[in-house]
């Protein structure tokens, strides 16, 4: 039984018992631990173990969020990534379509991933809330996938189609990709917004449509660089590159890096 000073009413006892239970990583560093002279007698079964066990156990998959406006091609990109990465990586997908199962159904119909590797999260009409302000349903979905499928290398979290301001919480994902398309107009990168400006990877999709909609890719490239500094931007046409090669390569590098960090 571990006595928590935090669990007690504020008062003199708080000063008498002062514990610091480290950062929660077992065996990393000794726990700073001062016992006051008039404290309540208590014992510690293992001072190196934080009694607040984390909800997650063991190494976890790299989580990549994929966001962007409605119709920019997020689901098609996820399907392409499943085809490109699904044979080598242990992969699962969480979808956040405003309509519960549409995106998950798309992935199933296209046969890119078996049903048990896809979870759909209801977002209560607010797709950005589910990926940013209240991420609990998405975290539950990710953890359910990991507990039912065993260890995973990569979880793709696809946001519902929203607007240029919708970004993922860092409490949910490790890296995020923002997808815009040339049909939305070549001004989109210049407009900026948190998605375009801060995403770890910006994907400018449907480049094959550029001549049809009069979009100037060089303008988009220049504006993206101006907005994003060193952050990478890739151009993509899924009709010409069904494996979404530049995005898949970017993710492969990330997964290799995160696994090196975990095991190293």
């Amino acid at each position: 039984m571990v006595q928590h000073p935090e669990a007690q009413a504020p008062g003199p006892a708080t000063d008498a018992v002062r514990h610091s239970h480290g950062p929660g990583i077992a065996g990393q560093q000794p726990v700073v631990h001062a016992h006051g002279p008039d404290e309540v007698p208590h014992t510690h079964p293992d001072p190196a173990v934080d009694p607040h066990e984390p909800l997650l156990h063991g190494p976890r998959a790299l989580r990549v969020g994929i966001g962007g406006p409605v119709g920019s091609g997020k689901t098609a990109l996820v399907a392409a990534l499943c085809r490109a990465l699904g044979t080598r990586l242990r992969l699962a997908v969480v979808t956040n379509d405003i309509y519960t199962t549409e995106d998950a159904d798309f992935l199933l119909r296209n046969g890119v991933l078996p049903a048990e590797r896809i979870r759909a999260v209801e977002t209560g009409c607010c797709p950005h809330t589910a990926i940013r302000d209240d991420i609990s349903a998405n975290l539950d979905a990710v953890e359910d996938l990991e507990s039912s499928l065993g260890p995973l290398d990569l979880v793709l979290v696809e946001s519902g189609g929203d607007n240029l301001t919708a970004t993922f919480s860092k409490g949910l994902i490790d890296r995020q990709i923002f997808v815009v398309d040339v049909a939305g107009g070549d001004k989109v990168p210049r407009k900026g917004g948190p998605g375009v400006t801060t995403a770890d990877l910006l994907v400018i999709n449907k480049t094959d449509l550029a001549p049809l909609v009069g979009a100037d890719l060089s303008v988009m490239d220049r504006d993206a660089r101006a907005r994003r500094g060193e952050l990478p931007t890739v151009f993509l046409s899924l009709t010409q590159d069904r494996a979404a090669t530049p995005v898949a390569d970017w993710i492969r590098t990330l997964v290799a890096g995160s696994q090196h960090a975990t095991t190293g």
């Binding site: 999260v121 209801e122 977002t123 209560g124 607010c126 809330t129 589910a130 302000d133 209240d134 991420i135 609990s136 349903a137 539950d140």
Partner: peptide, 10 residues
């Protein structure tokens, strides 16, 4: 606004 999943339940 407590992030406890309530927003997705009607």
């Amino acid at each position: 606004r407590l992030p406890a999943g309530g927003h997705a339940h009607s």
